[in-house]
Amino acid sequence: MPIVVDIDVMLAKRKMPVGVLAERIGITPANLAVLKNGRAKAVRFTTLASLCEVLDCQPGDLLRWEPEPNGTVAADDRTDGIGGVSQRDTVGRAGP
């Protein structure tokens, strides 16, 4: 996937354990692992904002784009618009 997640880099810079970050942003450690390991299909802006607030960084410090070697996008990575990602594919805040 051409989007690379650098949460581990920021965690190391801040000397913060993953469990502490998950607790502070209000998501489960399992969902944070999905996001930081690059397996999430999407991330909510509220979650991204919380990550930036807790880690005192900008979104670009956590996410970066690297082109695929062959320059194509896999069919599974496309959506049919802003609302084209299902909720099961998102990583978000834990809620009631």
Rank of each mutant, 00 (worst) to 15 (best):
R64W: 06
I25C: 06
T47V: 14
L11S: 09
A33R: 15
E53F: 05
E23K: 14
E53L: 07
N31L: 03
R14V: 08
Q58H: 14
K13M: 12
L48H: 01
I82Q: 13
M16R: 05
G26K: 03
T28N: 05
G38M: 08
I27L: 15
E66Q: 15
I25Q: 01
V20G: 03
L35D: 08
P69M: 06
L63S: 03
R78G: 06
L55Y: 07
L21G: 04
W65V: 12
A12F: 00
G60V: 02
D76M: 01
A22V: 04
E68R: 09
L32H: 12
L48P: 02
G81K: 01
T47K: 05
K13Y: 10
C52A: 05
Q58K: 14
E53W: 03
E53D: 13
D76R: 08
G26P: 04
I25K: 01
R64A: 12
V54C: 07
Q87L: 06
L62N: 03
P17C: 03
G60H: 10
C52G: 10
P67I: 02
G19I: 00
L63W: 08
L62I: 12
M10L: 15
A75W: 09
T28I: 00
G38Y: 13
A42F: 05
C52K: 04
V54D: 04
G83N: 11
V73L: 11
K36E: 11
G19C: 05
N70M: 11
G60P: 08
C52S: 10
V54L: 09
L32Y: 13
V20S: 12
M10S: 11
D76H: 12
V73T: 14
D56Q: 15
I25Y: 06
L62M: 04
R14D: 06
M16A: 04
G26H: 06
D77C: 08
L51P: 00
A30K: 13
K15Q: 15
M10D: 02
T72N: 14
Q58I: 00
P29I: 01
Q58F: 10
N31M: 13
D61P: 02
T28Y: 10
T28F: 02
V18I: 05
A74F: 05
T79P: 05
G19A: 14
T46A: 15
L32T: 07
E23M: 05
S86N: 08
L48Y: 09
N31V: 00
L51A: 07
G19R: 14
P59R: 04
N70A: 11
E23L: 04
G38D: 12
P69Q: 12
L62G: 01
D76F: 01
I25W: 02
L35G: 01
A42Q: 11
N37F: 04
D80N: 14
D80K: 08
R44N: 13
I25S: 03
I82G: 10
L51Y: 08
A40L: 04
S50G: 14
A74E: 15
E68C: 02
N31P: 00
S50R: 13
G71T: 06
S50A: 15
A75H: 07
R14P: 02
R24K: 15
G38L: 02
D56G: 11
R39P: 00
T47H: 09
P69R: 11
T28K: 12
P29N: 13
G71C: 06
P59H: 10
I27S: 13
T79D: 09
A33Y: 15
I82L: 14
A42S: 15
M10H: 02
M10T: 09
D56C: 07
T46W: 00
L48K: 05
K41F: 11
N37P: 00
L63Q: 07
N31Y: 10
